[in-house]
């Protein structure tokens, strides 16, 4: 009996599947590290993506050590750090702000962390600023909508606490629109869905929002967070992880990149050379 159409389709689909598997395997091989050159695995919030991608490339060129960046919202990457992969434990953790570093510390996931930049709450105005917002009082006018990230995002929590303490939250609340993350708040201003958003300055100064006005207002003065990089306890090579953390936090290396992207970097950071001395000197 001639081959039935079912047999042909079944065999064909298995052949295709094999082809795809081979393709994926081959593709994975291209990027697979050799055992001698395990990459450092860095979980990072996307707010730091642009400087970090450059720093990782710089570091690879300078030292030959590969760095693999894995991005995700701060809550997500914290979850991933909490459930480390058996074969690929993570080495470093750089969430959007220090609140997640604290959580990681409390969960016993990290012991040391290096400060990289300070972030402050600012107002990012909608493109073309149609409502003509120039001061805090303008936010309270009729019909003005302000995106405030919800308390799960650090800036949302800090801004709410601060404004409540200074007695300004009650007036703003009717105008506030809850968004999930800082980026969602910022994106809402870019599309024009809201007139302003309370976001970190580092986010507001990202190239994507370069056509929009950033307003620093005294009402948000106390809203401050830090970008920090934590060395995770699960790392297989604490030495290499610490070395990269120092590179990122060095005033003449990583911080230069962060500064390029308008982060307010830590002023009294040590230089890469200092760090190397520390390596050699062995401060452990």
């Amino acid at each position: 009996m001639r081959t039935s159409s079912s047999t042909m389709i079944a065999v064909g689909s298995l052949l295709l599947l094999g082809l795809f598997a081979a393709g994926l395997f081959w593709r994975e091989r291209q990027h697979r590290p050799t055992p001698a050159n395990q990459p450092l695995i860095v979980y990072a919030a996307p707010t730091s993506r642009l400087p970090l991608e450059l720093i990782a490339t710089d570091y690879e060129t300078e030292t030959g050590q590969r760095v693999e960046l894995r991005f995700g919202a701060s809550e997500d990457i914290l979850t991933k750090v909490r459930f480390p992969n058996a074969t690929e434990p993570a080495d470093l953790f750089i969430p959007a702000d220090d609140s997640y570093i604290r959580q990681a510390r409390e969960a016993g996931l990290a012991a040391e962390s290096l400060p990289i930049a300070r972030v402050h709450g600012v107002l990012l105005l909608a493109k073309t600023n149609p409502k003509g917002i120039a001061t805090w009082a303008d936010l309270l006018r009729d019909g003005v909508k302000v995106a405030v990230p919800n308390p799960a995002a650090a800036v949302g929590k800090l801004a709410r606490n601060h404004l409540t303490k200074t007695g300004k939250w009650a007036a703003l609340e009717p105008h506030a629109v809850d968004t999930g993350t800082v980026t969602e708040a910022a994106n809402a201003t870019k599309i024009g869905g809201v007139d302003a958003a309370i976001v970190w300055d580092a986010v507001a100064h990202a190239p994507a929002y370069k056509e929009q006005t950033v307003l620093t207002v005294p009402e948000l003065d106390g809203v401050e967070g830090r970008v920090e990089m934590a060395v995770l306890n699960q790392t297989r090579d604490p030495e290499a992880a610490r070395r990269f953390a120092r590179y990122v936090a060095a005033s003449d290396r990583g911080l230069v990149r962060f500064r390029e992207f308008k982060f307010r970097v830590e002023e009294n950071a040590s230089t890469w050379a200092d760090g190397r001395t520390a390596d050699v000197g062995g401060t452990k």
Binding site: H31, F71, A73, N187
Partner: peptide, 21 residues
């Protein structure tokens, strides 16, 4: 995860681009 060049699919690309605005 969203590792560029390794586990990044198109929907991840959308997320990565969206997350920097």
């Amino acid at each position: 995860g969203a590792t560029r060049m390794r586990t990044e699919v198109l929907s991840t690309s959308v997320f990565l681009e969206l997350s920097i605005g």
